[in-house]
């Protein structure tokens, strides 16, 4: 077992294979590191910065940094959770999140993190950006108001030739998701479903369905995200 590494998370002794990302290694050791952009099996991007931890004192994203022998990781500290909360708040003011009328409410990872961090109101002023809802595609509705630019759709969904269907357009504060005009129209049922699944928020929704699960029985109605660890 030469490739097993010892490391600690918040002082707790942990064990994982060398080269595992910190976030996966934490999960294997039953430690929850919150994230919005990371998705198992998809190359990490470090976009949302929510999984930021301190590795031997240095700030790093747990999705992109890999475990090594003797690493000391801080995770559930007041400082880090406060940073994470403030990132969640930024994402709320950046877009237009009308949770009461959102089909994803109760199953949304952004909202779930806001609950977990007990966000009553973002500390930052709302931007109320003017954004579109693109309902021109046969299988999905793309609501740009709710997009947090986590790039999960960009990374996880490609067509059979490996071409991008979702992509980033422009840069900085103007960045938004662009749907390939040809490929998005030809999205297979399976890919469409996957796109809906990977999106952590309600920015990619299936056409013609919504509010299926009754309130009280949705994913995050009773237990905070991460409470399974």
């Amino acid at each position: 077992m030469a490739d097993l590494n010892n490391f600690t998370i918040d002082g707790l002794k942990c064990l994982a294979r060398e080269g595992t990302s910190i976030i996966d290694a934490a999960r294997q050791n039953d430690q929850f590191i919150p994230t919005l952009c990371n998705l198992e099996g998809v190359p990490p991007k470090g976009a949302c910065r929510v999984c930021t931890v301190r590795v031997n004192g240095k700030l790093m994203t747990a999705c992109t940094a890999k475990i090594s022998q003797g690493m000391e990781i801080e995770n559930q500290t007041e400082e880090l959770n406060e940073m994470r909360k403030s990132i969640v708040e930024m994402l709320f003011v950046e877009g237009n999140h009308f949770c009461p009328s959102c089909e994803k409410s109760g199953e949304c990872e952004l909202q779930a993190l806001a609950y977990r961090f007990e966000m009553t109101v973002p500390r930052y002023p709302y931007f109320y950006p003017k954004r579109n809802i693109d309902a021109s595609h046969p299988r999905i509705v793309k609501d740009h108001n709710r997009c947090i630019l986590c790039k999960r759709c960009v990374r996880a969904i490609k067509d059979e030739k490996g071409r991008s269907i979702f992509a980033f357009l422009d840069r900085g504060f103007e960045t938004r998701i662009y749907l390939d005009p040809d490929l998005a129209g030809q999205l297979t049922e399976e890919r469409a479903r996957k796109a809906v699944e990977v999106c952590p928020v309600g920015a990619i929704m299936p056409r013609g369905e919504g509010f299926k699960t009754p309130i009280g029985r949705r994913k995050y109605d009773r237990h905070p995200i991460g409470s399974d660890m």
Binding site: K45, G46, A47, C48, R49, V50, I87, M90, L91, V93, E94, I148, L149, K151, F168, D170, R171, G172, F173, E174, T175
Partner: peptide
Amino acid sequence: EESCGSCSTCRI
């Protein structure tokens, strides 16, 4: 103007 926009922090 010059942020690449991929980190939530630097974008917002």
